[in-house]
């Protein structure tokens, strides 16, 4: 891990590898990751607004694109938790997918990582941990909301002494979720940066194209796991 950080520091113009704090808002430090998140939010908001501003029965243009994306996510979720719950949890899980996907791709933009204010949010463990914590909290919240006290029963299953293991499993989930996403995006960026430092022309291109594929796969995997966790927590057993 040490050499990648060194390479990253060398690539980003010798700046410190700690967080780049741009300014402070409401007493919270704002880093390049945060400003990029704002940009992504704005982009998604504008795209959504344009897509649904004047919806046609026969879609075209951006409406088609966004409908395709949402329908694809609904189909994915339906396969995991059934259509009814898929539509219920779509706002959370659909946003998660789109946000992570665009975040991953923001790292491919020219100057991303070197320009203050522009850095792929998902290449930072703090951000992915934040997202994973949202998933963790949502899982617990929906579990209790849908099943009440019965939700806690499954911590003692299949045998009561499994309780500590079940708790550890729950706790490890946000860690594995966030580290998987962060590690993949960060690592991919490091490889591109390393190649770029060696041969600036053409050579990093295949890796960047692969990066687009990985960016999609990681967003997909994160959303898939999140939906599996929520599906499991809200599963109502019919006897």
């Amino acid at each position: 891990m040490f050499w990648t950080k060194a390479a990253y520091a060398a690539e980003s113009g010798g700046t410190d590898h700690g967080p780049q704090i741009l300014f402070s808002l409401f007493g919270l430090d704002v880093t390049s990751e945060t400003t990029t998140m704002w940009g992504i939010m704005l982009l998604l908001a504008i795209a959504s607004y344009l897509a649904t501003r004047n919806m046609k029965r026969i879609p075209s243009g951006i409406q088609n694109v966004m409908e395709f994306a949402v329908e694809g996510i609904i189909n994915l979720l339906s396969g995991i938790m059934g259509e009814e719950r898929a539509k219920k949890y779509l706002p959370l899980l659909g946003s998660l997918f789109l946000f992570i996907l665009i975040s991953n791709y923001s790292g491919v933009l020219p100057g991303a990582g070197h320009t203050p204010g522009l850095k792929a949010p998902t290449s930072n463990w703090s951000v992915t941990l934040g997202l994973a914590l949202v998933v963790f909290m949502s899982t617990q919240y929906y579990g209790v909301k849908e099943r009440g006290l019965k939700y806690f029963k499954h911590f003692f299953e299949p045998l009561p002494f499994m309780f500590p293991l079940n708790i550890i499993e729950q706790m490890v989930r946000p860690l594995s979720l966030s580290l998987r996403l962060y590690g993949n995006v960060f690592g991919e960026e490091m490889v591109v940066a390393g190649l770029f430092a060696l041969v600036p022309l053409i050579v990093p291109l295949p890796m960047m194209i692969l990066g687009l594929l990985f960016g999609f796969i990681q967003a997909f995997v994160f959303t898939l796991l999140a939906s599996i966790y929520i599906a499991e927590a809200t599963e109502v057993h019919h006897h």
Partner: peptide, 11 residues
């Protein structure tokens, strides 16, 4: 920590 908080708020 601020990045975690911002990520949650933003999301």
């Amino acid at each position: 920590i601020p990045d975690i908080v911002w990520a949650i708020i933003n999301f």
